[in-house]
Structures are given as C-alpha cells and as structure tokens.
C-alpha cells in the first residue's frame, strides 16, 4: 500500500508500485484532467506537481511519491475558482484542442511559484518540456507573462490545492 497526498487529501493505493503516477491518478482516483501523450516523459501532457515541482508523471512510478504531496490540475483551480493562470488561459483564448493544457498550466504554475516574475527567456526554458501540437505557444507565453507582470503574480504562486486555499 502506497500513501501520499493528492490535492490535499491523504490517499492510498494498492496499485503495483511501478505503475506510473499518471495512471494511478486517472484510473484509480478517477481524476482525468492530467493527460497521456507519449508515455516517455517527452511531451508534458501528464505534468503534475510533486512536492511543488513540475513532474512528468507518465514515467514516475507511484512508489516514488509515497509520503509526498501531489497536485493536479483539479487541485490547482476549478471552473468556479480559477487559478490566475487558468483565468488568463480563458481570457486570452489560449487553448485550441485543449488536450495538453493541463500539463502546460501545471508547468507554468510551478515556474511562477519559484519565479513570480520570469522574463520571456525564463518562460521558454521552463516550458520547453511541454508540447502543444495545435501551436498555442505565443498565447501560452503571453498568458504567463501577463499573470507574472500583473498584481495576480503573488496569487499565482499559490500551488496549494484550491479547496484548501479558499477554505
């Protein structure tokens, strides 16, 4: 049995410890916001935060997160309580197909948590692990920079689960 916190709640699973965290979160805990894109840590669609760090979970055995804090897109914000990055994503119409965007937003949120005011180069470096086949890059970059340059930047550094933050 492996125990960890998922979006602020303690959970445990009997899944085999070599099962990638992505599949445990999607299939055991039924949180479908994090996506499968490559299975090889190459595209970032599966990005979650593990103890605050953006992590590609399609290649991360669940055994490796025992005792750690996992945050997914569902924990970052909800339609009724958007994280500032999610609000910017909506206002700038960043998503096209939308499939990669959970991973993009989680990568961006981890960046702002450690560097609330990144420049364009820092954004490009932090986001280079996330592929968007629809080609939304100019808007992703603009959304991150707008949040970073606004008075929302401090708020955007919150990477605690939204439910806790609002409680």
């Amino acid at each position: 049995m492996i125990e960890f916190t998922l979006n602020g709640k303690t959970v445990s699973t009997n899944d085999s410890p070599d099962t990638p965290l992505l599949w445990v979160v999607r299939d055991t805990f039924k949180l479908k916001g994090s996506k499968f894109g490559c299975g090889a840590g190459l595209c970032g669609a599966c990005t979650m935060h593990v103890d605050g760090a953006a992590t590609k979970t399609c290649v991360l055995p669940v055994g490796a997160v025992a005792g750690k804090a996992v945050l997914t897109i569902e924990g970052l914000g909800t339609p009724d309580n958007l994280h500032p990055l999610q609000a910017a994503w909506h206002e700038l119409s960043v998503p096209q197909c939308g499939y990669c965007q959970s991973g993009q937003i989680m990568a961006a949120a981890a960046l702002l948590a450690t560097n609330p005011h990144p420049d364009a180069q820092a954004v490009e470096a932090a986001m280079a692990g996330n592929i968007c086949r629809c080609g939304c890059y100019t808007r992703i970059k603009r959304a991150i920079l707008e949040v970073a340059g606004s008075n929302l930047a401090y708020d955007a550094t919150r990477t605690q689960p939204a439910t806790e933050a609002s409680a």
């Binding site: 479908k32 916001g33 996506k35 569902e74 339609p79 119409s93 960043v94 998503p95 939308g98």
Partner: peptide, 21 residues
C-alpha cells in the same frame, strides 16, 4: 470574445474520449 470552451480546457474538465470511464 473568448472561446466558449476556454474554461473547460483550462481546468481539465473538458471530456476527451480517453477520459470516458
């Protein structure tokens, strides 16, 4: 005006085929 599916797709709540359970 913003795309009508922007909030769904920024919150991981848009349902794709892979998500059906």
């Amino acid at each position: 005006f913003p795309r009508v599916d922007g909030v769904l797709k920024a919150t991981g709540t848009a349902q794709f085929g892979i998500d059906v359970d």
